[in-house]
Design a protein around this nucleic acid. Structure first.
Lengths: 188, 188
DNA sequence: CTATAAACTGACTAATCAGTCAGTAATGTA
DNA sequence: TACATTACTGACTGATTAGTCAGTTTATAG
């Protein structure tokens, strides 16, 4: 029953976001997941491995969602917008997942190998941005800086929407933030 | 000797960034700081209080630096650029401090009260941005979204520079990222 | 129905850690 | 000099925790 593995991951995610990392024991995770303490260690060699697996799988789920329904025939700008919308919507529908990624993304808790592995899933986005940079309408800018700004703006937008949930129109804020980004990197 | 208090904070910062939070014991912090374990608890009621103090004081030091040398008579755009440069330079000169802020900023480790207290130091930036929004050259945009985008872009730029330290020209990248931001929020 | 294997359990343990406190050193005061 | 106050020390402890493992249940096969 791989069902238990998922239950453990879900319980860990919830408790990490709720109580922080240090205040969440493996016993608490097991209890929340409805399994014995020993079972956790059947699926994950250690608490560390559990965390790294959670990070990797969460990031990959995110990356997978961002690519959904993208029309490769469309203009680069349209594809960027579609990715942008996907990412924002995923983040808003998976608040805890997104929070977890933000919490542990720059932390030494996550082994650097895990980080690289997860980053590979975003190559399609890098390709898209690389293509944009070669096009005339984009200002002269380093590819990596472009990528950093893209994800930075996206992250800021999602944080804003989470803090103002319900009080502002989601779709129009997403569009507005995208427009600001596109205008910023446009040559004219 | 309040010197010891600073030594404890400095040691905590270094070890948190190096080994993460859970893998840093109060004994290790004390040893690194060159004081007895008991001394740490003279200056901080608990490990939790130490972390919250470190966060608060780091954020305040950052906020203080960002405001330095700002000419209140200058245009809003010029003041924003000056703040932007200050923030980027501080972050690049205090890599661990910045890393720590990023690591624990969205985490439940930090009491929400501490967060609010630290955020108050950035009111001057909010005022500056509020003033910008009322000016004609800025596109119609919610004040909080503007603030989120500003810090998001800044954070992205600093992350980029930390990852490419030495390989790119620092000042020109800071300027370039600022130009992208200003262009993005400009009406024309 | 029986035998074998695989999944699971939870009481247990060795290790670690936050925080204490009785005692010592340093500093100030008269 | 003696006395008082404050700063500091580090061995110690009660509590917690990651991880184990001997035994039990469940699934699979002959």
């Amino acid at each position: 029953m791989t069902d238990k593995r998922q239950r453990i991951l879900a319980a860990a995610l919830q408790l990490f976001c709720q109580n922080g990392f240090q205040n969440t024991s493996t016993a608490a995770i097991s209890k929340q997941a409805g399994v014995a303490t020993g079972t956790l260690f059947l699926y994950f060699k250690s608490k560390d491995e559990l965390i790294n697996s959670l990070y990797k799988e969460t990031k990959n789920a995110f990356a997978g969602y961002v690519q959904q329904g993208i029309n490769a025939e469309a203009t680069v700008k349209t594809q960027l917008l579609q990715s942008w919308r996907n990412a924002a919507n995923w983040a808003l529908e998976h608040v805890n997942h997104f929070r977890f990624l933000a919490m542990f993304g720059n932390s030494p808790f996550i082994a650097s190998l895990t980080k690289e592995e997860a980053a590979n899933e975003f190559i399609f986005l890098q390709d898209l941005i690389a293509k944009a940079v070669t096009e005339e309408w984009v200002t002269t800018i380093d590819l990596d800086l472009f990528l950093a700004l893209f994800s930075g703006q996206l992250h800021a937008t999602v944080s804003y929407l989470n803090q103002h949930a319900g009080r502002v129109d989601k779709d129009s804020a997403i569009q507005q933030a995208f427009d600001v980004f596109i205008k910023g990197i446009s040559r004219h």
